[in-house]
């Protein structure tokens, strides 16, 4: 069996020095991907469905206190801990380096959710409803997930798919910046940059070479495709 290969390895760079924590990406993701609306009770129970969250950490004490923001989405690990534990291949890896989630296959063991060190997988504990006419907003490109299945950030795979089809229709590769997930597209400060890590000239590939780069929980050896750039200073000059 031949391994499939791909000219793409999608990745993202999150520049924490640019990130202001405003939350635009969170709503963009929710709007793009038919992410369920969760009420107060649901979030109180720890069942928020957001695929992308901004973590806020307090460091130090008043008056020398700092707040640090960390947008966390699926890291699309090259060695994703969620993949091998799924008994039904609902969590799988595609040749573009995306960590996919096939809702139809999912039986809801939630093993992947446990084994994801980044805790970015959300489970449909509830059977979510969109009161009419809010359901008009639901995007036809993306499944509305039924109860009992796991879901997570896909790097807006529907957009990638569209861009790849457009490109292959024109007999070329997807150009840098041609496709962006909703979060990166909307980020006012351009803290999120998406692109093809396999192309050394792409913007992400250039940013990844920054000395400020790091990856979340790097010691676990998951090799995420999401790179972070450390906040530059944030201390007194």
């Amino acid at each position: 069996m031949e391994k499939q290969t791909s000219p793409y390895r999608w990745g993202m760079v999150v520049d924490l020095d640019r990130c202001t924590g405003c939350g635009a990406c969170v709503v963009a993701c929710q709007a793009e991907n038919n992410v369920a609306i969760c009420g107060k009770k649901e979030i109180a129970e720890g069942r928020n469905m957001h695929w992308l969250r901004i973590e806020r950490f307090w460091v130090g004490e008043y008056p020398n206190v700092r707040a640090r923001f960390l947008p966390v989405l699926c890291q699309h690990c090259r060695d994703a801990p969620c993949e091998p534990v799924c008994p039904v291949y609902a969590s799988y890896h595609n040749p573009d380096g995306l960590n996919g989630q096939v809702y139809n296959r999912c039986v809801g063991t939630r093993y992947c959710g446990n084994n994801c060190p980044y805790a970015v997988r959300v489970f449909n504990f509830y059977s979510h409803q969109w009161p009419k006419p809010l359901d008009n907003q639901l995007s036809p490109d993306i499944t509305v997930r039924p109860r009992g299945v796991m879901e997570k950030c896909t790097f807006c795979v529907q957009r990638i798919r569209r861009a790849k089809e457009d490109a292959s229709g024109e007999g070329r590769l997807v150009r840098d910046g041609e496709v962006q997930p909703a979060c990166a597209q909307t980020c006012p400060a351009e803290a999120l940059v998406f692109g093809n890590l396999a192309d050394p000239r792409s913007r992400v590939a250039r940013l990844v070479r920054s000395p400020r780069r790091f990856r979340l929980l790097e010691h676990l050896g998951t090799h995420p495709s999401v790179y972070y750039l450390k906040g530059g200073g944030r201390e007194h000059v």
Binding site: C22, A31, E32, L138, Q185, T186
Partner: peptide
């Protein structure tokens, strides 16, 4: 279905805040 920033607009250059994207729900 979705609201995005208008890249041609000199104020926001294709970017948009959380509130701007949510006005879809005002409609529906």
């Amino acid at each position: 279905k979705k609201i995005e920033g208008n890249p041609a607009h000199p104020v926001n250059r294709g970017k948009l805040c959380a509130r701007g994207q949510a006005i879809l729900q005002e409609l529906y």
